[in-house]
Design a protein around this nucleic acid. Sequence first.
DNA 1: ATGGCAAAATTGTCGGACAGTCAGATTATC
DNA 2: GATAATCTGACTGTCCGACAATTTTGCCAT
Lengths: 241, 241
Amino acid sequence: MSDLFLPLDDHPAYRQIANVIEQRIVGRSLRAGDPLPSEADLARQFGVNRSTIREAIRELETHGLLGRMRGEKRLRVTRPEPRRVSSGVSRALALHDVTFLELWEAMMAIEPVAAQYAAERRSTAQLQNLGHARARFKRGAADTAAAVSAVMDFFTAVAAASGNQVLALSQAPLNLLLEPALTRIIDCVPQARMRIQDAQARIADAIKHRRSDQARAWMEKHIRDFRRGHEIESGGSGSGR
Amino acid sequence: MSDLFLPLDDHPAYRQIANVIEQRIVGRSLRAGDPLPSEADLARQFGVNRSTIREAIRELETHGLLGRMRGEKRLRVTRPEPRRVSSGVSRALALHDVTFLELWEAMMAIEPVAAQYAAERRSTAQLQNLGHARARFKRGAADTAAAVSAVMDFFTAVAAASGNQVLALSQAPLNLLLEPALTRIIDCVPQARMRIQDAQARIADAIKHRRSDQARAWMEKHIRDFRRGHEIESGGSGSGR
DNA sequence: ATGGCAAAATTGTCGGACAGTCAGATTATC
DNA sequence: GATAATCTGACTGTCCGACAATTTTGCCAT
């Protein structure tokens, strides 16, 4: 990065204030869980109007740096949840019209590795989550939406079991992007459900028995299958989305 | 994802409004480049106060869905730039105290693949960018910060050359996370500069001659080197950050 | 058309206001 | 004395109105 973050036109007070508070948070002066001073208080401290403070706060809130527990009024410093962050990423990617092929390549890069590490490091609880996702897939076989959701949960569970937050957070957006394509695949390709169920079983089994190579290999096949499914579903050529 | 997007507590008007506008954008009703109606206008349309509109707008602005060109006053719809998005991701990860090992594993998953595709698909211009980054690294060899920045640029250039936006956007946050560790490595490990320069040469060469396997292999070695460098720099054990 | 200028529109910020609500202190009840 | 019902105060969400600075626009002369 030859360039710094903020060009120069950072004039607006609300942005400056947002930055200052953000610094305090990433610099750990304000730590997760700490309650933020009241808006009026902040307005006083910064010497600006409350409206200005509010705009600054909105900024941090949408970045997930501030949030509030259910039914709480006071804002507190929070660590950005993967879901929130990744939804932003996937939306950005969606707006850039990513191809199914692009998505698929990224999945091929990440998911098998995640499966491998999952096999090496999964905890019992994480293993159970895998099982739950699988069960949900079987159960929801009739309902496409439920099935799709279960597939995404399965991937998420694998990534979580990898014990690697970076991989997990890199994987999350892929899930969301996969959804529309996967929905069509499951809907249009008859054998898809069975193949997915089979693949999940093998992957989960490998992870359970800590066979990392197998976990990786099966996950690779699984992902490859998606591509085939997508090509079948979209008529063989392949310029999805 | 068994859950839909909006839990239930989406009440605040500014959030609802933000969501509505966001829908319009992702749904392409508002397309990139379109100017947003004025705040007063939006306030009228939504039947709320301008302050409320402003808070909603701030939300979309920080997500990168709205922005303005240099010196412009009116907001227009914009496609979120990778830089903006990825900085959010890396900040999130930083706040979750990711280990160097986690980062490294993710890099091992993504960078070699990116290099491989880059070798297959790079354009001439992208190849030149690679060259520029390398040149900058050599030139900035004296200045650590410049060297680090050049390394990051090199990775970015490779990812861009991969022709895969998903990979590129997955890779970007890794760069930012790498910075601190890389700075220490370059500073503390004497042979680091030379090894990096060498690796970049081989990778760039492989990409230039479209040897995807070599590009991938050299990138793998390159990344492995970072791990060794980090272990040397941090005394052999390895619990970075 | 083109350039220049005044008017209209728009943003950033400010001050004040008010209803709804969540938290804690206070008081009434068993 | 412990618990339930209330009162108080602090906050947030939203609104109104206003003003300077700057951008955009409409209009006129060239």
